[in-house]
Design a protein around this nucleic acid. Structure first.
Lengths: 219, 219
DNA sequence: GCTACAATCAATAAGTCGCTTGAATGTTAT
DNA sequence: ATAACATTCAAGCGACTTATTGATTGTAGC
């Protein structure tokens, strides 16, 4: 009926919605939440062609979710705003609460999700003060270098089995990675338990930790 | 590349994004944030055919954003969760900050947005305690009846010019409606000022007021 | 039962999205 | 300059989305 300013505004907001309406783009946002990246690097991580990745990124930019800057040959993209992480988090929480499909996937893939019961940030802080735990970061080295939890050990998931010896004995391992739904830590916990090592997942990942204003280490 | 659980999860979350990726659906959500509605009633308010509205609503339901219940001949839809309002709000804030188009629309339509400078909830609470202001609700009567600001006067926008006499003299009018971007209050402020009445907009609308846990009147 | 009405379904046409391919632009290093 | 590389553009294809139409299901009231 009326096609006034309200419709025009909502049409604008809808472009943000559409930008979030694709699994690849959400995955890209999760990666960019770790730090800025070039197109090629991102393309590799999400397993898409460079041209395709570039188009997705422009889609995200049109929606105001990412910005870019040139650095020599590279064009580096990053989240345009800390609140993008917040938007993603709200999206995830809502999905986990109201979408049956989410629960289905989580249960289907990680049979015993009950045993996977994650530990919260607060609980981790408390327990790490008394030195009872080893904090394990499963992301690639460059993401680890761009900021990680204080005192965390970095072993990228692919190398975990080969480098089990680096983990101190008798300590419970708390694994974390990119975010709430990043699978690295899920797989790590499964691997560790199969080897008889006590392990649990941290509820959330690096961006949420950062967003909560908790200390970040760059060593 | 890998099409693991992460991709499956993100695909689920993307359905929420797609649901938000259409201006009509966002408008529907804003209406449903006022209270539950039948398909026909909603269709009229957003100016779409019933069949089309029904399809949009099913889209929203698939995304877990709305639920429905049967009441006699009617099927009433409502937001499935208070956090949907929160998601919308985050979306709006992000858009207002990062989308040039939003600013363009706001400026283009309401030439002197500076004069429109809205008043915050807190400021309204403070000033209304000393009785200096008239709070004006511009929504249709049924939405007013489903909950409104304490002490508010209800004059639907279409009737405003005819019912100016109902407003007390010498009092500044604070106008509000469905939400941050609902135009009713914008138009009302313009109308009132043209008549020489001091008027300002409340920054946000009913759902945000409710979400903030502030008192709601049902008289 | 039959009628009236609310809502959904099914089929369609026009438009948009997502991915691929190959060419074009822009920057660095030789 | 020229070569090498990162990124973007442009065209094209198949798949999905949106709005319309008319038929269908389900409920209330006679």
């Amino acid at each position: 009926m009326s096609t006034g300013p309200k419709q025009a505004l909502f049409a604008e907001f809808a472009t943000i919605g559409r930008a979030l309406g694709n699994a690849h783009r959400i995955e890209m946002l999760e990666h960019l939440a770790q730090g800025e990246r070039g197109v090629d690097a991102l393309a590799q991580r999400v397993g898409l062609s460079v041209a395709n990745t570039s188009q997705h990124l422009q889609h995200l930019r049109r929606a105001g979710l990412v910005t870019s800057r040139r650095d020599g040959k590279f064009i580096l993209y990053r989240l345009s705003d800390d609140s993008v992480t917040g938007l993603l988090r709200t999206l995830f929480e809502l999905g986990e609460r109201n979408l049956t499909g989410v629960d289905y996937v989580l249960r289907g893939y990680f049979e015993d999700r009950d045993n996977m019961e994650p530990i919260t940030r607060e609980a981790l802080l408390e327990r790490s003060r008394s030195g009872q735990v080893t904090v394990l970061d499963l992301r690639p080295e460059d993401e680890f270098a761009a900021g990680h939890l204080p005192g965390a050990v970095n072993i990228p998931l692919e190398e975990l089995e080969a480098r089990l010896a680096e983990l101190p004995d008798g300590c419970e391992v708390i694994a974390y990675c990119r975010g709430r739904y990043c699978v690295l830590s899920f797989e790590a916990v499964a691997t560790l338990r199969a080897k008889g090592i006590k392990a649990r997942r941290l509820e959330e990942g690096m961006p949420e930790w950062r967003a909560a204003g908790l200390p970040v280490e760059y060593v």
